[in-house]
Computed example of a mutant assay.
Amino acid sequence: MGDTATDYTEITYRVADRVATITLDRPEARNGYTVRMADELAAAFDRADRDPGVRVVVLTGEGDDFSVGADLSQGGFDFDPDAGPPADWQEPAGRCSKRIFAMDKPVIAALRGSAVGGGLTITLPADYRLAATDSRFGFVFTRRGIYPEGASAWFLPRLVGMGRAMDWMISGRLFDAAEAERAGLVHSVHEPADLLDAVYSLAADLAADTAAVSVAVTRQLLYRMSALDSPEPVHALDSQLIAGIGANPDAVEGVLSFLEKRPPQFTLSPEQDLPDFLPWSH
């Protein structure tokens, strides 16, 4: 059973088989993103995160390219250039990347063709990036006289290390899917015709075989606690989490389904069953 939302103008949104697909939908502009698209993306990820019928989100682009980055041809930013931005103004790419960062559900980005500038930074908080052999990437900001955005200077070194991040961002050069895979920016590379099959196969596996609350807690543990300067607060939180598994029906089901050699039927949902002591939930 599927659900298609029509209340967007620059993206599309549909749900099928517990997977929400969010598609950049400006192929005539090679999916160049605008302020409107950024806000629609943030709203769509929020919608998927709050929907109990969604377990995984796929982010992709219509046409031959994922996104060539910011398209300022439609008037630029959403503030009066003479008055300047309000104090709480947020640049567009970060509106999307910050919402992906906060997700309780895994996100898989399907990248083909060009994914450059903001068309790449918005994918950095995704849990997976799968690429086509025709993909071309670039953090091209220094070649345009502008600056990295989407909080990419925080995300990228965590994915590929400071040395590679420095190279890509300082040079602004383009690089191919093979280099991206070697560096760990993308998880796997596929022929263009096979990319979405690989993405949806991964999404189906995550939806069927992992526990939603366990995934939600795990992805936030990694993002919010891996950069701490000591393991002590991480272990303190681990201890609280593990102490509760005796009363956790998903933990019981996980063990039973393994012993009985059957698919698990997890019942807890991140919309209502996350532990109330998580430090990032306050």
Results as ranks from 00 to 15, higher is better:
V68F: 01
T21C: 04
D209P: 00
Y128D: 05
A227V: 13
G184Q: 13
L111S: 08
L228Y: 13
D229E: 14
A212F: 08
D46C: 14
L274M: 10
A43I: 06
R164A: 15
V234W: 02
S281K: 14
V252K: 09
E179K: 08
T121S: 15
P148H: 09
D64L: 09
T60P: 02
Q265T: 14
K105C: 05
S281N: 09
A180R: 13
M166V: 14
L59C: 06
P157F: 04
E271W: 11
A247E: 15
A153H: 09
M169H: 14
L202Y: 09
D17Y: 00
D78H: 06
Y13E: 02
M166Y: 13
E10P: 03
A16M: 01
E232P: 00
T34P: 05
L195I: 07
S171A: 14
G117V: 09
A153I: 10
L120R: 01
A38N: 07
L202A: 12
L72P: 00
A70R: 06
G76S: 06
L259E: 12
E40D: 08
W168S: 03
V140R: 14
L130S: 10
G94I: 03
A5D: 13
T123F: 13
P270Y: 09
G32M: 02
F137L: 07
V116D: 05
Q220E: 10
D250S: 06
V107A: 11
I146C: 14
L41W: 02
V213W: 01
P157T: 12
R112E: 05
R173Y: 10
V189K: 08
L202Q: 12
A83Y: 00
G75N: 00
Y147C: 01
I242L: 15
E91C: 01
A109V: 04
V252N: 03
N248D: 15
R18K: 14
F77V: 00
W168L: 15
D25L: 00
S171N: 15
R99Q: 15
A203D: 09
V234Y: 04
P279K: 01
T12I: 03
T23F: 01
K98A: 07
A243I: 00
D51H: 10
A151S: 14
S97A: 07
G75C: 01
Y128Q: 12
S67N: 04
D229P: 10
D65G: 09
P231M: 04
G150Y: 06
A93H: 02
H187C: 04
